[in-house]
Lab assay of single mutants.
Amino acid sequence: CAFTHRPCSHPRLEGQEFCIKHILEDKNAPFKQCSYISTKNGKRCPNAAPKPEKKDGVSFCAEH
């Protein structure tokens, strides 16, 4: 993984420079932040999710 703030030993995603944990660092990657919002604390999930086809579409990470 090419994350520069600290060493990361996670494997890169195929065709990308970053792992799934750090892929949002790459603005050109086909990922965006997960659209899930917790009902308990109102916070948005920080994980990466595939970018949807539509610009305003929602997309969820593997956990959600």
Rank of each mutant, 00 (worst) to 15 (best):
A29I: 03
G15F: 02
H10A: 09
P50S: 10
F3N: 03
P52L: 10
H10K: 09
A48R: 07
E17Q: 11
E14R: 04
T4R: 02
P52M: 14
F18V: 02
L24E: 04
L24A: 08
P52I: 08
D26M: 06
T4F: 06
E17D: 10
F31V: 04
H64S: 03
P7H: 08
P50A: 05
F31G: 10
H10E: 14
F31Q: 12
P52C: 06
P46N: 15
V58T: 10
A29M: 05
Y36A: 11
S9A: 14
K32A: 12
G15H: 04
E25D: 06
T4S: 06
Y36M: 05
F31N: 03
K43A: 09
L24N: 03
A62H: 11
I37W: 09
K32T: 06
D26C: 10
E14Y: 08
G15P: 01
S9Q: 09
I23C: 07
P46C: 12
I20G: 10
S9P: 06
K21H: 15
T39N: 13
A48I: 05
H22L: 00
C1M: 01
C19I: 00
N28H: 14
P11N: 04
H5V: 14
E63L: 06
R12M: 02
K27Y: 05
F3Q: 04
T39L: 05
H64K: 02
H10N: 10
L24K: 04
S38A: 15
H64Y: 00
T39Q: 10
K51A: 14
K43N: 15
C1D: 00
R12S: 10
H5N: 05
I20F: 09
K27A: 14
K21D: 07
F31Y: 05
Q16C: 05
K43F: 06
C61E: 02
F18M: 05
T4P: 02
C61R: 01
A62D: 11
E17G: 04
L13A: 06
H5R: 15
I37D: 03
A2T: 10
N41W: 06
E63G: 14
E17F: 06
I20K: 06
A29D: 05
R6F: 15
Q16A: 09
K21P: 00
A48W: 03
F31M: 06
F31C: 08
S59N: 06
G42P: 10
S38L: 12
D56C: 12
E63S: 11
E25P: 03
K51H: 07
A49E: 05
S59Q: 13
A2D: 02
P7G: 12
S9H: 09
Q33L: 15
A49L: 11
P30M: 04
N28D: 04
N47R: 12
N41M: 11
P52T: 09
D56A: 10
K21C: 09
N28V: 09
G15A: 04
F60L: 14
A48D: 04
N41V: 14
N47C: 14
R6M: 11
C8K: 01
C19L: 00
N41G: 14
R44C: 14
A2W: 01
N41H: 09
E17S: 10
E25N: 05
K40Y: 13
H22W: 00
K27I: 11
H64V: 01
A49T: 15
N28M: 10
T39Y: 04
D26S: 09
G42N: 09
T4K: 02
E25L: 10
F3L: 03
R6S: 13
C19M: 00
N28T: 14
E17M: 14
S38K: 11
N28R: 13
H22I: 00
R44V: 14
I23R: 04
A49P: 05
A29G: 09
I23L: 08
L13V: 09
A62I: 13
F18I: 01
K27D: 06
S38P: 14
I23K: 07
R12A: 13
A62F: 10
P7M: 13
R44E: 08
E14F: 04
I37L: 13
D56T: 13
S9I: 15
Q16G: 03
K43V: 12
D26I: 12
E17I: 14
G42V: 10
N41T: 05
A29F: 03
N41I: 12
L24T: 09
E25A: 08
V58W: 09
A49Q: 03
D26G: 05
K21A: 13
P11R: 11
C34Q: 02
F18P: 01
K21F: 15
I23W: 04
V58A: 14
L24F: 06
I37A: 06
A48Y: 07
E14C: 07
A62P: 12
L24M: 11
I37P: 08
P30F: 03
K27R: 09
C61A: 02
I20E: 09
P46E: 14
R12F: 00
R44K: 12
C1H: 01
K32R: 14
F3R: 06
A2I: 05
C34G: 03
C8F: 00
G42T: 13
F31W: 09
D56P: 11
Q33G: 08
T39S: 09
K51T: 09
K43M: 05
S59D: 09
L13K: 04
S38N: 09
C45D: 02
L13P: 00
H5T: 15
G42M: 08
P11M: 11
P7W: 07
K32H: 06
E14T: 09
K43G: 08
K51E: 12
H64D: 03
S35R: 10
K32L: 14
A62C: 14
P52S: 11
R12D: 00
K21T: 07
S9N: 03
F3A: 03
F18Q: 01
P11L: 06
P46W: 14
A2M: 15
P11D: 12
K51G: 14
C45N: 02
P50I: 06
D56G: 12
C45W: 00
G15L: 02
K32Q: 07
A29Y: 04
T39H: 11
K40P: 03
D26L: 06
N41F: 11
H5A: 12
S59G: 14
Y36P: 03
D56N: 12
T4E: 03
A48C: 11
G15D: 09
H5M: 15
A2V: 04
A2K: 07
F31P: 06
F18K: 02
P11E: 15
F18D: 01
K43R: 13
S35E: 15
L13R: 02
